[in-house]
């Protein structure tokens, strides 16, 4: 069974078709990359998968279950998590609080109002542990997110998604804007993702893509242009023409 698959997935904005009938399959435990020139519809596609945007047409299913009509939080509960290309964090919460919130939600305790968080030791311990694996020390954990260096904030993006213990993880340009000195930590975090999690990486950085992916899908003008192993994609003349011909960071 595939982890995530779409059939004819479409999204229109007025007359503009941003995602145009995409058939796509993410295998279980996959390391899959989605690339394409700017404006190819990659982020819209991720928004459709995560449920941040409703689809205009087509269906998508998660481990065989049709989730086309499910709102975002229901998809999250079924194991679909994502990160954002532009940081979507909680500036006035500490990393520990933000991760704890994600954990509480995962455990179905998000609506609990009669118990103080302070009394929920296991949640807190798990949050500390998770942040620990991404090398957040006690000072980082307890600082307001708005005061964290940018590289740490990118890692927190990933930490929040990992806290949900996803079965499918969508990483939308996780290393975008990270200075080279800090980007190694982001790469390490991605390399260390649990093997049973199916990962879809949306990325501009071709080095990262070819190092990470076992399979690559190329999106152009909202439609799938090509799909294959990294070698096949690197050789494909259509891809060269549409994509690799222009500067990789364009």
């Amino acid at each position: 069974m595939s982890a995530l698959s779409t059939h004819g997935l479409t999204r229109r904005f007025g007359g503009f078709v941003a995602v145009d009938g995409v058939d796509f399959t993410l295998a279980e435990g996959a390391r899959h990359a989605l690339i394409g020139p700017n404006g190819a519809g990659k982020t819209t596609f991720v928004n459709l998968l995560s449920g941040a945007l409703p689809a205009s047409g087509g269906t998508l299913s998660l481990f065989g279950e049709d989730i086309t009509a499910l709102p975002q939080h229901q998809r999250v509960r079924r194991g679909l998590a994502r990160t954002f290309q532009v940081n979507q964090l909680f500036p006035e919460l500490t990393p520990l609080e933000a991760v704890t919130m994600a954990l509480a939600e995962r455990e179905g305790a998000g609506a609990t109002w009669w118990r103080p968080l302070r009394g929920m030791g296991p949640l807190r311990e798990e949050a500390v542990q998770l942040l620990d694996t991404l090398r957040f020390d006690a000072a980082d954990r307890g600082r307001l997110t708005s005061g964290l260096p940018y590289g740490r904030q990118r890692l927190l993006e990933i930490a929040l998604a990992l806290a949900l213990r996803p079965r499918v993880l969508l990483l939308d340009e996780p290393a975008a804007g990270v200075p080279p000195a800090e980007s190694r930590e982001v790469m390490q975090a991605i390399a260390a993702l649990p093997a049973d999690v199916a990962v879809l990486l949306i990325e501009h950085d071709m080095d990262l893509v070819f190092r990470f992916a076992q399979r690559i899908t190329v999106l152009a003008q909202g439609a799938v242009l090509a799909e294959g192993t990294p070698e096949e994609i690197a050789r494909d003349p259509r891809v060269r023409e549409a994509y690799l011909g222009e500067p990789a960071h364009g």
């Binding site: 998590a81 994502r82 909680f90 919460l93 933000a98 998000g110």
Partner: peptide, 20 residues
């Protein structure tokens, strides 16, 4: 409580809260 924390989360970034 976790409920209160989620309210602060929503106030800070409703989009991300939904994604969590």
């Amino acid at each position: 409580s976790p409920f209160g924390l989620s309210l602060r989360g929503i106030r800070g970034n409703a989009r991300r809260a939904a994604a969590l």
